[in-house]
Design a protein around this nucleic acid. Structure first.
Lengths: 345, 345
DNA sequence: ATGAAAGCGCTAACAA
DNA sequence: TTGTTAGCGCTTTCAT
């Protein structure tokens, strides 16, 4: 079972025996408790180092009930937005000696529930979730966390009724601002490509779009709001479909940069001038938004700040800081990034 | 300390008491052991469900010595290549009921060592590492894993001397093939933009480039190999620098798509025709490679397969499958993706 | 400032 | 097929 040269772990018992102390003192010294004399502490640390002692976290966890581990569930990891969030979470967590258990729900409510179960059993100290498309409103799989008073922090979940902390961006304002930006530049036939799912991010953008249009006295046409999966291919396909119709739009506002980039490709293929004949805007400030020709106007999604804020909020909760328990939501600002694709002269 | 409605956890003792069985039987039933009668199993599972029993993983971990957790250290999470690898790892791991503890070394050897320590103490069953630029050859911080016979799997670490399993792509061949591709299309002054760091991925590409050039009887000029950080900005800057010199290259082979995309931007800014006047190729098959104009020829980095292979190899090792212990390296193929940016007529 | 002792919830011999 | 029992390595009262 074990390879010949693998050795038994050094425990606090070994240290205690070698130093003629009790395991209690060793434990205290190792945890830096003030009640241990400096001399003893020094001896303990030196012996620990020389024997190569390693704390057994599972034992501590079992005893203390805390794991110094945060669970994290996202739909998928390999997108710009998600990896920005998770990257920031990990970095922030590590600085506080916390680890991040990352899982992907792959957009499935069932998998999300399985992940939540697994992470609950692993006794994570907190859970951060970017809900999948399918989760909407359905949060029972987090009940065990609630019951045990384990902080659950939701990212970009529009719901206010549930008892979790919600961290999100002001997507409504972003959608509104972007639409205003296009309107101010003279666009009137503004097509909004949104998600066919029900994620609050997209709902917010869309609501902002609607409000800006309505405020400007321009009726929102149903066929100007196009739901899809927001991929590059969807962008290409959408443009091709639209261009088969009589009336062409003078602006496209897509809820993802990839999709907007696809639009740009398809438009250029048709020889249509951007932004001369049509303005194009995206969402997310994805690296691709810098690569399009012309560069893409977009909305800066502050994924890094979101991840950081989530972990900070969680730490506050775990340390029961001032009224952290009363925080219901944190909303981060996401500004416009104006580039050439909408700079109509 | 606890909120009023938080309850004590249900343990196997509770189940045992309610059912008039011993904790051993409960444990066996819960673990699906064959020695427990179907009737008893059913009763146990029903009672567990009705009381909301949750296995305490830390207790099991402490007792069994296994954590069903894999540690993973990457330089950073928010790049296309890394998130592809980690995403695949997580998905593959979850299917085997394993969790992934993800940490970022941020390219620092010190942080990498800290992460390794933390993960060791957390008693991960295996460790997967994409070494940072600075780690090269210096692997002592993984010694504790070796000593305890915990599988360590390195990704894209060119080193063969250490005792870990190494999973990588055939970068030498990829670099060779790409250079051949350019040569066959008539290019002679081929500039290779590589990493200023010492990562084997880039060393492999560069070596392949050198070999192809030499084989074709074209001496490799030192100033044709340009080291940088491979960002978009580096690409732009490199082109601007090169274009101040007398002799212009007829091809650019950059070791990252972002960098190649930067090159394309800078070249178009100068009114240079791609691929007419100069061919451009990248590496990684990053989403941006589809967004450039013209689309970028690149090398497909099979991040997904790497992550999957890493976990599979690890599972084999943990289950001591056939000769899994004798595997020293797994090399995956990474083919060329030819697009318009090098299609010289 | 230090020690003794009681578990945390589970697994795995060994018994029956 | 089920039960008894002894820990896994640590934290944490309660004594001293």
């Amino acid at each position: 079972m074990q390879s010949p040269d693998s050795q038994k772990d050094i425990t606090i018992y070994d240290l205690a025996a070698r130093l003629g102390l009790s395991i209690a003192t060793i434990s205290r010294a190792l945890n830096g408790e003030a009640s241990v004399s400096p001399r003893t502490k020094k001896r303990v640390f030196e012996m620990a180092a020389s024997l190569g002692y390693r704390m057994n976290d599972s034992a501590r966890m079992l005893r203390s009930g805390r794991s110094n581990t945060i669970g994290c569930i996202v739909p998928q990891l390999n997108t710009h937005r998600m990896s920005a969030i998770v990257s920031a979470m990990e970095e922030t967590a590590r600085q506080q000696a916390y680890c991040l258990l990352v899982m992907q729900s792959l957009g499935s409510k069932e998998i999300e529930a399985i992940c939540a179960n697994l992470l609950f059993n692993k006794r994570v100290d907190a859970l951060m979730v970017v809900p999948s498309e399918k989760t909407a409103g359905n949060m029972q799989h987090f009940d065990p966390f609630l019951k045990r008073d384990i902080p659950v922090i939701l990212i970009d979940s529009g719901e206010e009724k549930h008892p979790f902390v919600n961290i999100s961006t002001d997507n409504h304002k972003a959608g509104y601002d972007m639409t205003r930006h296009l309107l101010v530049r003279g666009c009137r036939q503004i097509v909004h490509i949104t998600s066919s799912g029900s994620l609050p991010v997209y709902a917010g953008l869309c609501a902002g779009y609607r409000q800006a249009m309505t405020e400007s006295g321009i009726p929102v046409k149903d066929h100007h709001i196009i739901p899809c999966a927001l991929t590059r291919e969807d962008g290409i396909h959408t443009i091709r479909t639209i261009w088969q119709q009589r009336k062409k739009p003078d602006a496209i506002f897509a809820a993802s940069d990839e999709c907007a980039a696809g639009c740009i490709s398809a438009l250029k293929e048709k020889g249509i001038c951007i932004p001369g004949e049509i303005a194009v805007a995206g969402f997310g400030n994805d690296p691709v938004s810098l690569m399009t020709e012309p560069p893409l106007t977009t909305i800066d999604y502050p994924g890094h700040h979101i991840g950081k804020a989530a972990v900070h909020q969680m730490m506050d909760r775990l340390q029961e800081k001032t009224s952290s328990r009363t925080v219901a939501a944190i909303v981060l600002r996401s500004g416009l990034i104006i580039r050439k694709s909408t700079l109509i002269c």
